[in-house]
Design a protein around this nucleic acid. Structure first.
Lengths: 225, 225, 225, 225
DNA sequence: GATGAATGAGAATTCATTCAT
DNA sequence: GATGAATGAATTCTCATTCAT
């Protein structure tokens, strides 16, 4: 048995033949990056393949067309974690303000700061070229996300922590700053270095401060925001 | 005197034939629409020409390349109105909360609700393909806009109307909802009809409500903003 | 009678409306220059018009197509002077060597040094794209020219001035240096300045020297070269 | 051992399919032919591809643009054989007249009669559209060629075989007939069949006869040339 | 399975030619 | 007659996709 076979595959020079099962994933990662960076139309299939370390032909071995690759990228990066999050929130013990804080921070940790955040920019940029993908994303991500936030706001109002709200539209007070942060990160933030990137902690703190004071009932005096 | 003579010349210009003066504008309008809708790469030059009612060749008579057309679209739609707005705000008499309200509403009227709003989506989507245009836009639009808002917030804080703020980042509490509204309008909002479009008045009112309560000092008691 | 009419037309500012009858000629001159410089296909009709100081439309007013313009250029620059030259030579009194000298020098004066020399380069470059023009040129220019030279050589041989020659092919001993000089002038000579242009007098003298010694009978005795 | 194994590999290569090694050469050959025939501008890239038996796309796989193809054609057909020829001449034993004869005949065999001769017509026709290529050709081909001929003439003069010459310009007495023969072959000669083609042996013999008698010292006495 | 040479439909761009003014 | 805005056929070049190896 040659020594080379003892080393884990990826530790060896990955010149050729990496873990086979990993290829589609690497292609999807590369595709996400490039689609986010340049848009669907301006991304060349060969570039995706090159970044994934395979040849052009291999890309089409796993995905029948560039469009199918796009769909797979969206599917792959759709957070299917809403059920899990609903659970976390159902058993949440603290104040609703804390829920909102937790919500934004955990979102940043698990989504916003990861490459998956790019999917948001991608969908926004490409929605009108792929209306069915857009509808799918609306269905699978945006609607559940909004629903989750709506429940939080409802809880706040019901428990007398938040003032009466136009809940349907108040949702966007939470969503907009998150979307804005992502858009910034993936567009201007990636190419106008003297002004960006924003500091995400400071950004989220600043938004939360104003947001929560804006949502909470104004007490004779107020607890910490 | 026939009524028709009251109409400005260009309204009676021949639908086809010589109209050198009008062409570039029509092409820029068509291009803005299509670039916003499909992105730069996915928009065919011939489509732009067709939408402007001219032939492919005519487009290249006025713009030496598709890329120059893109740049011209951005240049054309850059709001050079910040000086004017600064003026309006300098002489503003009311409360700073009213300034913020005025700011968002007037923005919607003059920018958000017009086709020019598309430029924001366009820049965000294409920034990384056109970094110099992005830098230019940052310089000419974003920086002055942020500066304007920063001044408003400063005024609020200085006059004791707003609580102490991380002004640099508090700016985004005003910008984010506006950008989000535009993005919605130009992406999902244009292709997932069952959930959109948002009602802009209601949206702006809801955001202002939370935003202003979030910014203002908490009074012992307070009239609603 | 207005004063302006006294001045010769071309002396006045030729901003607009030059001598009408002159236009086709100016177009032909411009076209010859540009066709020689860049070739037929690489010359744009608008450039020809611009160099002639008229608009694109005017060009097509005088010549129904770019190809017809080309044909007119060739026709215009065809030396119809062979009859006249035949005459000159018929009554020529001196030695045949002097005829040859006279021939090359007069050719340089009347053709080689003028813009009309470009037609040779043009024909050589474009012959295969315009075989009928090539045939026409062969018929109208090359054949008579060769005929003229053939007669000179014949005279030299008949009078015992020249040695016996393969007259048909000896013609090229006179033609080749002239064609070469023109080709040099209009191609490399126009763009490799450190080696060119050749000095035409010196060139012609050098060629004549060798040529005539080569043609003349060797005075006393001589091994074949 | 089967005979077929003696044939070089590329002779047995499949007419279609993978032939990366052979493609550029085939394309260059096709391009040389067509550029010589029709000129650079009038030759369509697709035609070149078709003549090489491949598709449009394949051409651009090997050459990034039509202009680079042109440059490659010139580079490919530049005779790098001057060193070798210098060698042949250095060790030449016979008379200088024989050298001149050998020179023209060997030139016809190795260059003039091959497709590579087209490069001369190509350069002359396109020099002004590609001045840098022209300069390169001047540098790499014309200058060494002239140098070679200059040395021959010098040898003739030094050994008392040739009369005193304006060597710089006498070079053209050898070059001009060769260039003329090539130009004839590739332009009128290819499209006015009733007068052409010239018989190269007869042409070269006729030129040599006159040329050498013109160069050699006149044996006993001499009338003025 | 993987590759990359080859393909050809499609997009940007050019430019001869037309024609309303 | 002259103009130059407009046209669209023709051309260069790109790139998703195929397929022989």
């Amino acid at each position: 048995m040659p020594l080379s076979e003892l080393a884990p595959e990826e530790d060896r020079a990955p010149r050729r033949g990496r873990r086979k099962e990993a290829r589609p994933g690497e292609l999807l990662d590369a595709a996400l990056d490039l689609f986010v960076e340049k848009g669907f139309a301006a991304t060349r299939a060969e570039e995706v393949a090159a970044r994934a370390g395979v040849s052009k032909g291999t890309l089409f071995l796993y995905f029948p067309s560039k469009e199918e690759l796009f769909k797979a990228v969206v599917r792959e990066n759709i957070s299917g974690r809403f059920a899990e999050w609903e659970e976390e929130f159902k058993s949440f013990e603290g104040s609703t303000a804390d829920m909102v804080r937790y919500c934004m921070r955990v979102w940043w940790e698990r989504i916003g700061s990861t490459p998956a955040s790019g999917i948001t920019k991608l969908i926004i940029s490409e929605a009108r070229n792929f209306p069915d993908i857009a509808a799918f994303y609306q269905q699978e991500v945006i609607r559940p996300a909004n629903q989750l936030i709506r429940r939080i706001l409802q809880r706040g109002v019901e428990r007398g922590e938040f003032r009466p709200l136009d809940i349907e539209y108040a949702v966007f007070s939470i969503v907009a700053p998150m979307v804005f942060l992502i858009m910034t990160k993936h567009s201007l933030g990636a190419c106008v270095p003297q002004e960006y990137p924003l500091d995400p902690q400071r950004y989220i703190d600043a938004q939360l401060e104003t947001l929560l004071q804006g949502l909470c009932v104004r007490p004779a005096a107020g607890g910490r925001p």
